[in-house]
Simulated scan of single mutants.
Amino acid sequence: MNLVLTYRPKMKTNDVINDIWLKSMASTKKEFLKKLFSVFLRDEPNRVHKIRDALQTGEMDKLKFLAHSLKGAAATMGADRVKEACLDLERSALGGNTDQAYKDMLVLEHEMKSVYDFMSEFIK
């Protein structure tokens, strides 16, 4: 099977949460959005921990699966930078590139902290 990875430029936005998505949700569904953010804050740190564990133990298939699943959760929440970081990590895992995966993991953890901080503040 030939797998072709295409180049995708890095995001140019500085928004932790996609501004267009956030405005559309917050304008009519603010309480629902707070609940979504609360669930994300409750559940996703554990998934990030599992991603780190999979990387440290060299379980690249598990790493790829976990990064892919977090990518979907991030996309649902408008966390585009986290989504992109997960995509990079998923690609590194798919290619078996452990060194790059560690670099991608650092980016993911940084972006997740930004999302956690944003969501926590939004909920207040």
Rank of each mutant, 00 (worst) to 15 (best):
S69I: 05
V107A: 11
N46C: 13
R8C: 09
G95A: 12
D15C: 00
R47Q: 15
F37N: 00
R47F: 09
A85D: 00
M25D: 10
D15M: 00
V39Y: 04
K12W: 04
I51N: 04
H68G: 12
E59M: 08
Q100K: 08
L106T: 15
V107K: 13
G95R: 09
A75Q: 04
K113D: 15
V16Q: 06
R81Q: 02
D99V: 10
R91C: 12
D117V: 09
T13G: 01
E84M: 02
T13C: 03
D61V: 09
L36D: 11
V48R: 10
V48P: 00
M112P: 10
V107S: 15
L36K: 06
F122C: 02
N2P: 11
E59T: 07
E90A: 03
S120I: 10
E109R: 02
M119D: 08
M112S: 11
G96V: 14
L3N: 15
A79M: 01
A85P: 01
D80Q: 11
L70E: 03
T6E: 13
A101I: 13
M25Y: 12
K83D: 14
M112H: 15
I123A: 00
F32G: 13
A54H: 07
K50T: 14
G58S: 07
M77S: 02
Y102C: 04
V39W: 01
D117E: 12
E111K: 08
T6Y: 15
A101K: 11
T98M: 10
L106A: 12
L87V: 07
M1H: 06
L87K: 07
A67W: 01
V107C: 10
Y102M: 08
N18W: 07
P9D: 11
R81I: 00
T98F: 08
R91W: 08
L3Y: 06
V16S: 06
T57K: 14
L63W: 06
A54E: 02
L70P: 00
F122S: 02
D43V: 07
M77F: 09
G58D: 06
A26W: 08
K103C: 04
V115Q: 11
S69P: 00
K113W: 14
T28D: 14
I20C: 15
A73S: 05
K103T: 09
L66W: 04
I17A: 03
V16C: 04
D43N: 04
K71D: 14
K35W: 05
T13K: 03
K64V: 02
A67K: 02
L5D: 10
G95I: 09
F65C: 05
L5S: 07
K10F: 11
T6S: 10
